[in-house]
């Protein structure tokens, strides 16, 4: 009887395994498998028909032929426009991340130091924009940034400017849109780190002779380092591949990889090229993602 139960226990997975298995299965099916497919497509060739690419492996007269076509990657590497687009994407994502940090840190700091009863309300307000569609919110910025939009009309009415500022269809518009959209992702991890900080550490710093701003730079800032890293990566990683914001707010000079991917897919109908663009971007992002993982696990070990 005992033996039987033991065997049964070995055969049927425990609850723990089951709980972990579910997200694993989900990620495997809906993330890993599609990604392998995309990698596969990136090594094939464009053709007319459905699907619009050649199969990777073919069975011809009993012989399995596998043809890996590296030409798309070669093209990516040699084409100046693609390299410029990647660099420009990285630059725009970096600047947006930096601006988010500059604006988000004071906000997160203020919320974390607010009365406990008002903290939740303030965090609610930070997350409130998520209640409406991302697309609609970016469209709303079009109405604000246009030459005869709300912002320009307001500034002209104030008499600060006489000619409308060109923001719409420029990189400035993209920065504004990116900072606006990704700011909550910066504020949330920063807030989480700042709110749990032991305030007696600051008192100790004052007590030992540190003026408030020195206490901030020597104690608060270093202690929120992991929050800064987490927030920056949460903004940077999606910002690199952002499509909607540069498409709607950016101009012809806005080079971003998301737009390039879109045009390869839908305008040129070149799936293999689009896949190669995607894979190259993932490889590019692996470094920051690995960093993110590294800091997350390190922090978990520390606490």
């Amino acid at each position: 009887m005992k033996k039987l139960r033991k065997m049964l226990a070995r055969a049927v997975p425990s609850g723990r395994t089951g709980v972990i298995a579910f997200p694993f299965a989900f990620l495997f099916l809906f993330f890993f498998v599609p990604f392998i497919l995309v990698i596969g497509i990136s090594f094939s060739q464009q053709q007319m028909g459905i699907p619009p690419y050649t199969p990777l492996a073919e069975l011809k007269e009993g012989v399995l032929n596998i043809a890996l076509n590296l030409s798309h990657y070669q093209f990516l590497w040699n084409d100046d426009l693609y390299i410029a687009t990647y660099l420009s994407s990285l630059k725009m994502a970096l600047i947006s991340t930096f601006l988010c940090l500059l604006i988000g840190y004071p906000i997160a700091y203020y919320i974390a130091r607010a009365e406990p009863s008002t903290r939740n309300t303030l965090m609610m307000l930070v997350m409130l924009p998520f209640w409406t569609s991302f697309l609609i919110r970016v469209y709303a910025w079009v109405a604000i940034l246009k030459n005869d939009g709300l912002l320009n009309n307001f500034l002209i009415w104030l008499g600060l400017i006489h000619e409308p500022l060109r923001l719409y269809h420029t990189n400035w518009g993209v920065y504004i849109g990116m900072v606006y959209s990704y700011l909550p992702f910066m504020i949330m991890p920063l807030y989480a780190h700042l709110v749990k900080m032991d305030l007696s550490l600051l008192e100790a710093a004052y007590d030992l002779g540190a003026k408030p701003w020195r206490a901030f730079f020597q104690v608060t800032l270093p202690l929120s380092k992991n929050g800064i890293i987490a927030g920056s990566l949460l903004v940077f990683i999606p910002a690199v591949g952002e499509y909607v914001i540069p498409e709607l707010l950016g101009g012809s000079e806005t080079l971003m990889i998301g737009r390039q991917m879109w045009s390869e897919f839908f305008e040129n109908n070149d799936w293999p090229m689009a896949s190669a663009v995607t894979c190259a971007m993932v490889i590019l992002l692996l470094v920051p993602m690995a960093l993110f993982q590294h800091y997350q696990t390190k922090e978990m070990e520390e606490s």
Partner: peptide, 12 residues
């Protein structure tokens, strides 16, 4: 100068 109850040593 004060010695804090929780010591408040700078962890970093």
């Amino acid at each position: 100068n004060m010695m804090f109850q929780s010591y408040a040593l700078f962890p970093h």
